[in-house]
Nucleic acid binder design. Structure first.
Lengths: 307, 307
DNA sequence: TCCTTGTTTTTTATGGATAAGAGACATCGA
DNA sequence: TCGATGTCTCTTATCCATAAAAAACAAGGA
């Protein structure tokens, strides 16, 4: 049976929304709510019904009037708002990054299902989707092998990343200046300046900006395989640095500065400059990643020597 | 319920095997049979039981004696020997390459399940696995978009292929001559010569050789992402040229000659030569593919102009 | 004539069931 | 002792069921 995580998440969001409105005010129409909260009208209506029953809203003359802000214990626990597959992803990465699994370990679906408390169907789907990240591999015959978040993984990842990014950066700087992406680049550059000025408090915002910057560069000369590959990068960085917060602020500050040089290089239109700035940034990103792997996450056995 | 395709396939293979043995001779042990036919002993035993019941074999004193070659109508139909997922893959590719689906079409799981007569779970698994080929894409929200085997697909594919192969070829020619791969290269070279000599009759054997050659080159400096990507190439070529047999012999002959030059270049160790030979081969492969796309498969509407 | 809301239909997420197939263990004859 | 066969257990492929969500449709009021 499908779980009702969407409902619960939407319910919580709606509680937030109610508190943003003064008592007596009206909430937007169902359609608007649906698109704002990212759910279907069906779900929105269910939530509204529930909230009316709880006495927080009143439905009158096509308007949903806020009756009270008293949402004390109404919030649904956050765990219940994430879908089974997202939960599994998180559990799995946690398990992996904590180093519970040595590279080379065979895992089978049935066992995983037991370990993570998720149906085998769910496990199987997850492994299938996940295998593109190169961290697990289906073994001919049966079962899966766990490849580990190892140094060889990271270095193979970076080798590709460098090829792709260099290619994209050069292609980008050759684009005619009228192209929309130059304008977007300007905006992103502004965001970098803004973030840098405020780095002390807002350094967490960097990873999103980083992602948008690199994706913009890459998208200048679109290639679905390159863009798909960037999903892997995003994913890996997301989890790795979630487990590994050491010197995050400093790390991000450095990266911002490198990005700004990189952007400047792109503007210059000079390919040698672009090449140099891009390489410099990637080299430093790689180094940072490796250092954080060696110092923190990887207990003995998590490092391998390539295959 | 799991289908018994393994059993049926094994049964058919065993019939072949029986006919290879004179009446009165004994088949190998269960263990040996299992490993030779690529199935588990469980399956082998089931097949043997069945064949004994059919009077083709007799089990006496630990030996399986062939009693007769009379396997007339015993073969299971070939369709019943392929697993649901393989069947789906084939159906889907057929549907796609025949041009029944215009690029950009949204497909949903339920509809596909109906169209192909396979459970939605099966469809979903297929789409998940298949999405890495870049021909379908999960749409945020729900459903899938069919991207089409278009020119832009092929050209994006080749762009990556060229990057990867060039990198691998250069890495390969730098490998010390003692490495095992040089020996393997020699063997593969021989196979090329042999095939070329016999091209009139054996030209179908090229695609397998082609695959092994490129994978050998690539594997010289292993990178899981590159090797994974080569799966896509293999897959695409496999299906495309299955639908498109035009001038296959000529095409393969040309490729063999190019490979031989490429191999020679690798041996020379001179990077410029390698670079040139590799590029030449890829350029010609690309051209061939494009021509065959334009001339045969793609009806109007199958070509797009990139996204 | 549109936006809103009420209602119905379709699709998707997720767990469960089950026979097929794989693998592990036990036994036995040379 | 060791490979072969017999037996038992566990895993996987595959379909089905069902509630949740999404989408499509219908009707009503400014």
């Amino acid at each position: 049976m499908k779980s009702d995580t969407v409902y619960k998440r939407t319910f919580n969001q709606m509680l937030d929304l109610i508190q943003d409105h003064p008592v007596g005010a009206a909430l937007p129409s169902e359609t608007v709510l649906a698109s704002e909260l990212g759910a279907s009208r069906t779900t929105i209506r269910k939530v509204i019904d529930e909230l009316c029953a709880a006495g927080l809203l009143r439905f009158e003359a096509r308007r949903r009037i806020v009756l009270s802000h008293d949402c004390g214990g109404l919030y649904h626990p956050v765990v219940e708002t994430v879908s089974a597959s997202d939960r599994l992803e998180k559990l799995f990465m946690e398990w992996m990054l904590r180093g519970d699994a040595k590279p080379g370990t065979a895992i089978n679906e049935a066992e995983m299902a037991r370990r993570f408390g998720i149906s085998t169907t769910g496990i199987r789907e997850f492994l299938n989707r996940f295998s593109r990240f190169g961290l697990v591999e289906r073994r001919p015959g049966s079962g899966w092998v766990f490849k580990g978040f190892s140094e060889s993984f990271a270095s193979e990842l970076f080798e590709i990343r460098e090829m792709f990014e260099l290619r994209s950066a050069l292609a980008f700087c050759r684009l005619p200046r009228e192209e929309a992406c130059w304008k977007k680049l300007g905006q992103i550059e502004q965001e970098h300046h803004a973030l840098l000025a405020d780095i002390e408090t807002r350094f967490h915002d960097f990873s999103d900006l980083d992602d948008r910057f690199h994706r913009l560069v890459i998208h200048g000369a679109p290639n679905r395989f390159i863009e798909d590959f960037y999903d892997i990068i995003t994913f890996v960085f997301h989890y790795h640095y979630q487990w590994n917060k050491k010197s995050e602020k400093q790390r991000n500050r450095t990266a911002i500065v490198e990005h700004l040089r990189y952007i400047e290089a792109l503007r210059s239109g000079d390919e040698a400059t672009v090449d140099a700035a891009c390489r410099a940034h990637l080299k430093s990103a790689r180094l940072t990643l490796f250092q954080s792997m060696i110092n923190e996450t990887a207990p003995a056995g998590t490092k391998d020597n390539g295959a």
